[in-house]
Simulated assay, not measured.
Amino acid sequence: MQHSDKSIFAIGDIHGDNDALTRLLRRLPVRPETDQLVFMGDYINRGEDTRAVLETLIEVKKQYAHTVFLMGNHEHLLLEYASHPDVEILRTLRKMGIETTLASYDATVRELQGLSFMPESHRNFLHSLVLSYSCDPYLFVHADTEEADIAASMTASEISNPHRAVLVDKALSNRRLIREYVKDDPRQNITSKTEQENGEPASAGASNSGSSTICAFNASDTEGVTVTTPYKQERLVVFAHVSFEMPLVMPDRICVDTGSVYGNMLTALELPAMRFHHA
């Protein structure tokens, strides 16, 4: 099927916000038998309704013919702890809001091992998540990472590799954009509060530095409108993981995480129309 025959909708980090998820799904002009939904990972933690989110996503998989569910770093770490309990992993999970996930199941930390507190359908869903999805000219990944890191983590996931968890975590937790366009270039007016203590979405400003131009748009500007990139690139990477108050559009990359769980909006990007939808 050619891209002209279908649309792809990439949906940003949900983090237990089932209300925003259901509202967004109602607003998307998706043709269930033709169009594709790509969920970008981080469905769990922080928000209050992780259980409801997983139920909704499982139903979406049944109702829509073409769905892809990426793994986020939150799901990966939960699965790692469930298989290999470690106090350091648990400490990180607590910082990531695992208690809200457990509360949605009326469960306790003691039940994390083996995910015994979850229905089998939820466990199967988490184990079915994929690390990336390629549909030329698009590449969908949870975090803005190097394709080499994705390839290494995928290879490691297919064999018995003692470094698998490290490789996968690297691919799912990368903040390449922040390193390249903020720390190394003081002219860029972008900060990511996901690297700060409060964990709220960052604001984003536009700055012109040649091919590294970053364009950020207000929600009112992007709801149902078409956005064009400065030039046509060979491959467009769509990612999430680092939350901003507004969708972030760059010549070769687009971030669709707009911090729904922090009281902001949940965003979906429609391709190839380059149209944003919000809830």
Score class of each variant (00 low, 15 high):
residue 128 S to Y: 08
residue 181 Y to A: 06
residue 1 M to E: 11
residue 49 D to C: 11
residue 268 A to R: 13
residue 251 P to K: 13
residue 275 R to L: 00
residue 142 H to N: 01
residue 146 E to G: 14
residue 135 C to Y: 03
residue 154 M to V: 03
residue 201 P to L: 01
residue 227 V to W: 07
residue 155 T to W: 03
residue 156 A to D: 08
residue 134 S to H: 06
residue 81 Y to I: 00
residue 228 T to M: 14
residue 207 S to P: 02
residue 198 N to S: 15
residue 272 P to I: 00
residue 16 G to P: 07
residue 187 R to D: 10
residue 177 L to C: 08
residue 262 Y to H: 13
residue 3 H to Y: 01
residue 236 L to Y: 02
residue 182 V to N: 02
residue 142 H to I: 08
residue 13 D to I: 05
residue 232 K to A: 04
residue 55 E to Q: 15
residue 272 P to L: 05
residue 266 L to K: 02
residue 220 S to C: 00
residue 231 Y to N: 11
residue 214 I to Q: 07
residue 137 P to D: 00
residue 66 H to K: 15
residue 193 K to P: 03
residue 217 F to R: 00
residue 256 V to L: 04
residue 36 Q to L: 02
residue 51 R to F: 01
residue 222 T to G: 06
residue 124 N to C: 15
residue 88 E to N: 05
residue 58 I to D: 06
residue 167 L to W: 03
residue 202 A to V: 13
residue 265 M to V: 14
residue 105 Y to A: 15
residue 210 G to I: 08
residue 14 I to S: 10
residue 92 T to Q: 15
residue 177 L to T: 15
residue 80 E to R: 09
residue 217 F to N: 05
residue 39 F to Y: 08
residue 25 L to A: 04
residue 275 R to F: 00
residue 234 E to L: 11
residue 125 F to E: 09
residue 194 T to A: 07
residue 159 I to P: 10
residue 173 S to M: 11
residue 105 Y to V: 09
residue 267 T to Y: 06
residue 166 V to P: 02
residue 131 L to D: 01
residue 236 L to K: 03
residue 258 T to D: 02
residue 28 L to P: 00
residue 195 E to Q: 03
residue 135 C to W: 00
residue 223 E to C: 06
residue 112 L to K: 04
residue 170 K to F: 05
residue 29 P to M: 06
residue 245 E to I: 04
residue 226 T to V: 10
residue 99 E to M: 13
residue 70 L to D: 09
residue 160 S to V: 14
residue 177 L to Q: 09
residue 226 T to F: 09
residue 126 L to M: 11
residue 156 A to F: 10
residue 43 Y to A: 14
residue 222 T to C: 11
residue 146 E to S: 11
residue 169 D to A: 09
residue 213 T to N: 07
residue 11 I to H: 00
residue 41 G to P: 12
residue 88 E to K: 13
residue 245 E to Q: 10
residue 149 D to I: 10
residue 39 F to S: 03
residue 39 F to G: 01
residue 210 G to R: 15
residue 170 K to Q: 15
residue 114 G to Q: 05
